[in-house]
Structures are given as structure tokens and as C-alpha cells.
Amino acid sequence: MLVLFLRVVLLYLLVFVALRLTGKRQLSDLQPFDLVITLLIAELALEPATNTGVPLFYGIVPILTLFLLQNLVAYLSLKSEGVRKIACGQSIVLISKGVVEEAALRSARYTLSDLMEQLRSKDVFSVDEVAYAILETNGELSVLLKGAKQKPTCELLHIPAGESTLPLMLIQDGQVHHGALKRAGYNETWLKKQLQKAGILSERDVFFAFLTDNSMLHIQRYRSRGGNVIFFDTKGGGKERDT
């Protein structure tokens, strides 16, 4: 069993190093050490699961080993900047002050086509719109547009912005979410009143209803109860849209 443990440690290191050296193009949203676990665990679980000739412990030991290694790397990354750089890598600036950095592209194994593809996925179709583009450790590209190309904000336009709150799901599948209702600062009596205003007799007729940050109640009835969608301003009137 100790040999099995050490073999998994070696295998982990090997796959980890290989993944780190292949560059960020191979990564999706996962950090390299997360990806190693994802790749290995499924394969390790398969053998003892499908082959009854193999003791279950032959699957349990490697999986527990990976679990411990994963936690160890995560802990060390949290505590040490050096370990974090080794385990997760560093962000790479691919475009700086509007100039594409050739050396950075090469080190990230990124071609110009890859860069353009990533930019297009961010709704940027020309490099000259970009001030900075940074390849993050999880393989995502962060883009900062040049000042003139940036989207105007409410602050910039001197427009009062609404309060930023999460929309709250008040009813789902005919069931009232009491926690969300409480978080919104209302109670069931208030909700019943709103439903009555919308012409709904019972919450059991509602497929879902959520309250948006600007006090709009978005209600959709079950198809069997009409299936209509109602946008309802809880501080004013309501309007209905047929579906």
C-alpha cells in the first residue's frame, strides 16, 4: 500500500509538471492542480469499480492520496506566494499599452490566431481597441479596452445608478422561499397581496417568481394555469406579457 501511495505521488507530480509545461492553452477554468485531480480520479476509480479482481483498496488509496495532495497544494498556495506561483503559474501580459508582446505569446504557447479568437469572444474585433490583455492563471483572457473604447458607466454619465442587489427567487415550483422573502424584507402576507394584485389566487399556480433589484416582481404561471408572464412593479402597477 505504501508503494501504491508513493506511485500516486510520483504520478501526480508527473501529470502536474506536464500540464504546467504545456502552457495555459490546455487549461479551462481550472487551476493546474485542480485539473490533475480531475484527470486522475475518474481513471483511478474506474479500475476497481469495473474489475472485481482488483481489491477496492487499490482505488481507495490513490484517491485518498490525491485528496490529501490536493489539500496540501491548496493550503501551501494559500500560505506562500512562491508555491502559488509554482502551482498556479502567473498571469501573463499579452498586450501591453496596445502592443502585442511577442515574447509573452511565445512563453504562453499562444499564437496570434488564439489571441484574436479570445479577443473576439470578449466582443473585441480589433487589437487596436485593446490597451491591456492579460492571460490569467486559469487560461481566461482579461481585456482592458483603450479609454475611448470603454463602455460608459453611470458614474461617467452622471446618471444615478440603482442599488446593486441580487434578484431573489421568492417562489419556485409553487413553493414560497421563506428565506429569500425574509432577505428581501417582506413577509408572506405581502407576497399574497402582490399575487392578488397580479390576479393570482395561490402561490401553487406560480412556476417561479423573483424580485429584481428595482422592485420588479417577475412572475411566470404554470403552463397548465395559463403560462403567462407578469412583470409587476411592487411599488406601482403591473403589466402582463402573454407567452
Binding site: F5, F57, V61, L64, T65, F67, L68, N71
Partner: peptide, 21 residues
């Protein structure tokens, strides 16, 4: 929960290293 799981996993692995051997 994670700390407890790690401790249990480590203890179980230690048992598996020692007992069969």
C-alpha cells in the same frame, strides 16, 4: 469538515500502510 476529512484520510492511509504489511 475539510480538516476532519484530511485527518481521517491520513489516518486511514497510515492504517493501510501498516496493517497489511
Amino acid at each position: 469538515a475539510n480538516l476532519i476529512a484530511c485527518a481521517l484520510a491520513a489516518a486511514f492511509l497510515l492504517f493501510l500502510f501498516l496493517y497489511p504489511h
